[in-house]
Design a protein around this nucleic acid. Structure first.
Length: 207
DNA sequence: ATGCCGATGTCCT
DNA sequence: GGACATCGGCATC
């Protein structure tokens, strides 16, 4: 397992980064609890020109400030008042790109994940969806701003390759008008921990 | 199998 | 006061 270095995040093509994050591993060790999961679904958010992004039109708030900072940090925010959504900040300072982690396949620490999610047995819904991905890994808004190089929250590569990558438009961003049509969502085809969501044929491609 | 609904922090008008 | 990068439960077909 090789921790992803700063160079991985400091790149200008956030869509390519979102694609490359598939198959990588999220590692958390919070209060002595170690959990890991494989990333199976991501979405790219392309900075100030992306109507679906919190940073659209250079909008800065206390919440979004982390997106404008250095790449390789966590951006975690509360969605609908309940769900803690985990993103990784990309590109350079003042270029607020981010990739939303939308689904993970549980690998290690599954017993602790079950406790966090109030479940008795693991199933396909464990880690499926951006809220659940964070919940299984114990990631919360208090972790926003963490450095993925030096903290107990980081991403790693175990060399896994060979899966089929599918592409679709992003989920839940219809308010972003024409930008909602961008093919910025990536997932591992056939993986059960990917959000159940059906689009028409134009929305889903296999790469 | 499909659909509605409530929960509710942050940011906006 | 309303919208929002969601989810699980319950109702209905």
């Amino acid at each position: 397992m090789q921790k992803l270095g700063r160079d991985f995040y400091v790149r200008t093509d956030v869509v390519q980064i979102a694609k490359e994050l598939l198959g990588k591993i999220v590692v958390t060790k919070f209060e002595g609890i170690y959990t890991t999961g494989r990333i199976v679904e991501t979405e790219a958010y392309a900075g100030i020109i992306d109507k679906a992004s919190h940073a659209y039109n250079n909008r800065r708030t206390n919440r979004t400030e982390i997106m404008f900072g250095d790449a390789g940090h966590a951006y975690v925010y509360l969605c609908y008042g309940i769900h803690h959504l985990f993103n990784v900040v990309c590109n350079t300072t003042n270029h607020p790109d981010a990739v939303l982690i939308r689904g993970i396949e549980p690998l290690e620490g599954i017993d602790d994940m079950l406790i966090r999610c109030n479940k008795k047995k693991p199933d396909a819904s464990l880690g499926r969806g951006p809220g659940n991905a964070s919940k299984t890994l114990g990631i919360q808004t208090e972790h926003s701003g963490m450095d993925l190089q030096s903290s107990q929250l980081y991403l790693a590569d175990d060399g896994t390759t060979g899966f089929d990558v599918a592409v679709s438009k992003r989920i839940g961003v219809d308010y972003a008008a024409e930008h909602a049509q961008w093919l910025y969502r990536f997932y591992i085809a056939g993986n059960p921990h990917v959000t159940k969501h059906t689009f028409n044929k134009e929305g889903i491609l296999l790469l």
